[in-house]
């Protein structure tokens, strides 16, 4: 008899007697529940206090007036009506939409293209993958500084190169300092920074496609182009959906690069929703209104995510 035998206390009662129960159902259920909650608690408590709580608080603040120090006042829908009179909000809203409309498809195409190139058997493949991914992990502050220098309108290497290619100095783009070019600069930067990440996601997707599909297509006589359109792209459907949702959410949340490269300017040409939230909160200390803009942002993100879900469901 090993130790294993000793665990359940066995009675020596004769068979005819009703067998005994060692643990009651309630005791066991409770134990199981406590164990499960003990797993979740460390993370969930932190999450509830520092994330879930503030989110609910934010929703409530949207209907309040508060400057952070004086007592909170109930504001009803006043913050909401203010949105319509706020010209900066209007610019921020449209700039966010424009940014999203350009960044999502362009990043999608670039990262997919890159993934397909780097999924082939080429020499130094892992090295190239690392290079493509590196901008994503690089410090935003550092690369924004470099970007600002490279694209300096007066003496940056990019404009110097363009000038040396024979472009008239008056036609050289003003990049971040120019109303018409500032958004272009931000969009280029964003694509450069994040395409490596989505490339990795596409790589994972590509590796999930069965090689048999391509072998079958080879035997059917498909060329590379046909294989791409008939096999690769449809098989990547779920990945593309995921990437586009992530990109859209990320685009609506854009803030950091704008803060570091253009500060929302010149004028309001790169002012986006999150930047407006930041300004209203930490510059104007109009916390209620800031939360209202945040609420609008949240509703937008939620709506777009739901619409994207619906569209994929219909397609499938």
């Amino acid at each position: 008899m090993t130790a294993a035998r000793a665990v359940a206390p066995k009675t020596t009662a004769p068979k005819s007697i009703v067998p005994k129960t060692a643990v009651t159902k309630r005791q066991r259920k409770r134990r199981e529940m406590l164990v499960a909650y003990s797993f979740i608690a460390p993370n969930f408590i932190g999450f509830a206090v520092f994330t879930l709580g503030p989110i609910l608080f934010a929703f409530a603040l949207a209907f309040m007036h508060w400057d952070g120090s004086n007592p909170i006042e109930f504001a009803g829908l006043e913050n909401f009506w203010k949105l319509f009179e706020d010209r900066a909000f209007k610019s921020a809203f449209w700039n966010t939409i424009v940014y999203t409309i350009f960044v999502v498809p362009l990043t999608l195409v670039c990262s997919l293209g890159l993934a397909i190139l780097l999924n082939q058997k080429i020499f130094g493949r892992n090295f190239f993958r690392t290079i493509a991914f590196f901008p994503y992990v690089a410090s935003l502050v550092a690369v924004a500084v470099v970007w600002n220098m490279l694209f300096n309108p007066d003496f940056g290497p990019v404009n110097m190169a363009l000038y040396n290619m024979g472009i008239d100095p008056s036609d050289l783009p003003g990049w971040a300092a120019d109303r018409d070019w500032a958004m272009v600069t931000i969009i280029m930067f964003s694509i450069w920074k994040s395409m490596g990440y989505f490339m990795v996601i596409y790589l994972a997707g590509l590796q999930g496609i069965s090689a048999e599909l391509y072998e079958a297509a080879d035997i059917d006589g498909a060329n590379s182009w046909q294989k791409f359109w008939r096999i690769t792209l449809p098989q990547l459907g779920p990945t593309t959906f995921f990437v586009s949702v992530m990109l859209t959410i990320q685009s609506f949340k854009v803030f950091d690069q704008i803060f570091l490269i253009t500060q929302g300017g010149p004028g309001t040409s790169t002012l986006v929703l999150v930047y407006h939230i930041y300004n209203e909160a930490f510059i104007s200390w109009d916390l209620g209104y800031s939360s209202m803009v945040a609420l609008v942002l949240f509703v937008l993100v939620l709506t777009i995510t739901i619409v994207q879900f619906r569209l994929t469901e219909e397609r499938d």
Binding site: V7, A8, T11, P19, K20, T21, V23, Q27, R28
Partner: peptide, 19 residues
């Protein structure tokens, strides 16, 4: 219902204690 191993109802005994 009841699940009996030997002379013990083990409905609520953990798997590792059932031998």
């Amino acid at each position: 219902g009841d699940l009996i191993i030997g002379d013990l109802i083990v409905n609520d005994v953990a798997a590792k204690d059932r031998d």
